[in-house]
Design a protein around this nucleic acid. Structure first.
Lengths: 211, 211
DNA sequence: TAGTATGCTTAACACTGTTAAGTGAGAGGA
DNA sequence: TCCTCTCACTTAACAGTGTTAAGCATACTA
């Protein structure tokens, strides 16, 4: 019963390819709009207009607006994970790896402020959504895992006074996130030079951790 | 022309009192709803329903929804400022004052998560609104000023290696904000014990700053 | 008592995310 | 070739949003 259908498989495959292509078109259009104007300022109708389909078509490919957003974030955060993995691969001094990992995290956030907002700042907290829960674990959480490895390496090399891997990782994350999110969401505040602030944070935290 | 009216001033004053009372009623109703259910999940119509007036009445007292929000935040943040000023008054060791100021900041954020969200996380960034710009300076910025004083005291007492007051203040703020905002906006993440994380951050930053 | 200012409401506009119902082209089988 | 049925897509609508123009009634002034 499987072979019987093979003769007509071509069109089915073609249609599936076309569906996948449209899905990508939606993602591309939505990403561009979201990143340019912010999630809240872009309506489903605007996205639909951009791809020249009716608004309801989007709902054939994504459950709702939030799902569309998460699909985009997943894509983008793959980039961060890749960069952070590259950093930890050509690793010499574990502390230097950690330092550069943190910098990569913050730089990434500042380079894609709207993506960062979407995943770590706004974070549309739907109540009782277990699917979303799992999805989050595969996104920014992978970046967290990378950071965790960096911290673990430092602790294993006995570079730090504090030995609670989870606590130190979360603190480093909070440090990076604090700077990133403030710089993004309060751009009019009279900040000191951005790179100085970032370096000061990372260096101070690491100095404070050293034995 | 001023005295002529005095005979009839009573009613005018009464009406002004009543207007002020209604303004407060709106603020109280909105605060309760915003804090309980979050800014985005509360409509102007809901606020109006609660005070038993028509929705448009609110617009006679507040320019728009965001202004209503900012008025509430102003009120609430007076509490934080007061607490932080109290801490710096009975100050012995400047480092201890700074430490306790930071803790007060984070504790405040965790106690009023929706207020904190409104002022420092969501921060409805209206484009080209200069009035709002000024208003912000009188709100959370006062708390920033307090933190700044604490940092300045430490630097003047030659307790810190780094002597750039602004940079250190902004770093301390980012540290506190990072923890506060992450704990608020990702409540499902497997955090280590909250107080431990807060203390670790503050202690590590201060340790890293010491000469 | 007539007229006006004031405080509030009604009704509407232009949007939002989302869905139920309908359309129409093309594939599959006879 | 013709018929049927599937399925990608659209139309129209719902229920809600923030906000405003216009109108009404009460209370104060002259």
């Amino acid at each position: 019963m499987l072979n019987r259908a093979i003769g007509h498989m071509g069109s089915k495959q073609r249609r599936e390819r076309e569906k996948e292509a449209l899905r990508q078109d939606i993602l591309d259009a939505a990403r561009e709009l979201f990143v340019e104007e912010g999630y809240d300022n872009v309506s489903m109708r605007r996205v639909a207009e951009k791809i020249e389909y009716s608004p309801t078509t989007i709902y054939l490919y994504f459950e709702d607006k939030a799902s569309l957003l998460y699909a985009i974030c997943e894509e983008t955060f793959a980039g961060l994970t890749k960069r952070m993995e590259a950093i930890s691969r050509d690793g010499d001094d574990p502390i230097e790896v950690l330092r550069r990992g943190c910098r990569a995290y913050v730089d990434f956030g500042l380079k894609y402020p709207n993506h960062y907002k979407l995943t770590f700042i706004n974070h549309p907290q739907h109540p009782r959504d277990e699917k979303r829960h799992l999805r989050e674990e595969s996104m920014g959480m992978k970046a967290y895992g990378n950071l965790r490895s960096g911290v673990e390496a430092c602790i294993k090399a006995k570079k730090f006074r504090e030995t609670n891997v989870e606590a130190v990782t979360q603190m480093m994350w909070a440090g990076g996130h604090g700077i990133t999110s403030l710089l993004i969401s309060m751009p009019d505040f009279p900040w000191v030079k951005k790179t100085d602030l970032i370096d000061l944070m990372i260096d101070t935290l690491i100095a404070g951790l050293r034995a």
